[in-house]
Design a protein around this nucleic acid. Structure first.
Lengths: 118, 118
DNA sequence: CTTATGTATGAGCAACTGTTCATATGAAAG
DNA sequence: CTTTCATATGAACAGTTGCTCATACATAAG
């Protein structure tokens, strides 16, 4: 990231607009967290898991069975989903049951679906 | 992706639930498009651009200036954003002006922001 | 104790991604 | 025509990612 303001000769905006635009761009820190969050949705296996969990709580082997993925692959991805707080879990004997953490997940998936279906 | 149904001895769900879960998982084709869409949001530079454009239409050099990125980097990313139909553009003389394609973009960004701010 | 089952995790590797650099294209000005 | 400015794009390279395989851990059963 270089110092690079004014690469073009003029800016096609009023100073007022420039201020507003700069204000609208979140801090580096938030941008980092935000892009990290969306990266999690950017994988077929993980959205598959999220769609499945949006219906019912499931244990790891259930998820692996129904998504037709290996236990290891699912376990690795659940770790990612846990880290982003998109799923929560509870242990019961040998099994671990996962479910969606909150409703933002459903909303984001829904909006995405609407966008591609247009 | 291997044949891998029934990796565990029993499924902890009723047949009814299994059916519902399988119904909730979109087709491979849709999963591909969906994860591709979210991948686009999974990059700091691109969300920066989207936040900027959510305020005002801007030309490439404006975006580069205000996001403090090189013209080339921005141009490459705008290509990605165009491909996902998240931005639209119009040419005017030497310049190309970009703007947001629709409101799903704003909603998705907003929901993401809410999630990380909790 | 030993064994079996469900889950988690580290290493390794192929595939993908985002940037830089060099260059091409296209429109306006001289 | 040539030059200049705004934008687009291809190649190359470093960094990242998601899988598999092997293995470790934890709980339950024998």
């Amino acid at each position: 990231m270089k110092e690079q303001i004014d690469i073009c000769e003029y800016i096609n905006m009023t100073e007022e607009e420039v201020k507003e635009v700069l204000k609208s761009i979140p801090s580096e820190d938030k941008l980092y967290n935000l892009s990290d969050l969306f990266k999690v949705f950017g994988d077929k296996t993980r959205i598959k898991i999220l769609f499945a969990l949006s219906v019912a709580e499931m244990c790891v082997c259930d998820i692996a069975s129904l998504t037709r993925m290996t236990q290891s692959a699912i376990s690795h991805q659940l770790k990612t989903l846990r880290a982003s707080k998109l799923v929560k879990y509870r242990k019961e004997g040998k099994a671990t049951f996962y479910s969606l953490a909150d409703d933002h997940v459903r909303t984001i998936l829904q909006q995405g679906k609407e966008h591609i279906e247009e």
